[in-house]
Simulated scan of single mutants.
Amino acid sequence: MPGPRSPSPARRLGEPYLWGAAGPGSWDCSGLTAGAWSAGGKSLPHYSVAQYDVSTPISAADLRPGDLVFWGDGGGPSTIHHVALYVGDGRIIHAPRTGRPVTEESMYYWRTPDFYARP
C-alpha cells in the first residue's frame, strides 16, 4: 500500500481522466493504481490485465485498503478492462472514464467487480 511519504490517492480526487495518462495531473484507471503503488515503493505495469497478472488473487471478503478491484467482460482475467484502488468500507478511488474525474465511490457503483487482487 502506498506509504506515508507518498501523496494519498485521495489527493488525486477531481483530477481529469485521460486515456493512457499516469499523472501527475491526469490519469487513466491503471495509471492511477500504478501511480499509487509506485509512490509506496512497489512497481505495477500500466495495464489493468497485467496488474492482475502480477498480483495475488484474493476474495472480496479479504479486501484491505490498497488492494485492487477489477471489472471484466464476464470471462477470465484476460477480459479485465477497469481497475480501482480499494480504500475500505466498500469504497474505491478510481479514474472511471472520459468525462469523469478521479472519484471516490462505492465499489458497486456500476456492478459487482469480477476480480480482486493484492500487489
Rank of each mutant, 00 (worst) to 15 (best):
P2Y: 10
D73Y: 08
T112H: 12
D67Y: 04
Q51D: 06
L85I: 14
I92Q: 00
A36E: 02
G40C: 06
A117K: 01
P24T: 03
T103N: 01
G14D: 04
L63Y: 03
A39G: 14
G35A: 15
T98S: 12
P101F: 03
P9H: 07
A10T: 10
R5Q: 08
T98M: 05
P24A: 06
V87E: 03
H94D: 04
R111H: 13
Y47A: 07
G14S: 08
F70I: 08
S26T: 11
T56W: 11
R64A: 10
K42F: 13
S59W: 10
F115D: 00
I58C: 05
P4Y: 05
P7C: 04
P65G: 00
Y86I: 12
A95Q: 00
C29Y: 07
P7A: 14
A50P: 04
R100G: 01
G31R: 00
R118Q: 08
V102Y: 00
I80R: 06
T79I: 08
R91Y: 12
S106W: 11
G99E: 09
L63T: 02
T103C: 09
L85P: 01
R111W: 13
G23C: 03
V83W: 01
G35W: 09
H46P: 03
S30K: 04
Y108I: 02
G99W: 06
A60W: 03
V87F: 02
L44I: 07
G35Q: 02
H94C: 01
Y47D: 12
E104K: 08
P65R: 04
P113R: 05
W19H: 15
G88C: 05
K42V: 15
W110S: 12
Y116N: 08
G75M: 14
P65Y: 07
R64I: 04
T79M: 13
I92N: 00
V69Y: 08
G40W: 06
Y86D: 05
L85T: 06
M1D: 04
P7K: 15
A84Y: 01
S30P: 03
T79G: 15
G3V: 14
P4I: 11
D62P: 03
T33S: 12
W27R: 03
L63C: 07
G20L: 14
E105R: 09
T33G: 09
V49S: 05
I93T: 02
D73N: 11
R91K: 15
Y109V: 04
A61F: 11
S6R: 09
A22T: 10
D67G: 04
G35M: 03
Y116G: 03
P65S: 10
V49F: 12
A36W: 06
H94W: 02
D73E: 11
K42G: 14
P9Q: 11
A39W: 04
P65D: 02
T112R: 15
A60F: 08
L85M: 10
G90L: 14
G31A: 07
T98C: 07
M1E: 15
Y109E: 06
L32S: 06
V87D: 00
P9E: 11
Y52L: 00
A95K: 00
R91S: 09
G99T: 15
P119R: 07
W71C: 02
L63M: 07
S26R: 13
P101R: 03
Y52M: 00
T33K: 06
D62W: 05
V102K: 00
V87Q: 01
P119G: 06
W37C: 09
D89Q: 12
L85C: 06
P57I: 13
R64G: 00
P24K: 07
F70M: 09
W37L: 12
S106A: 12
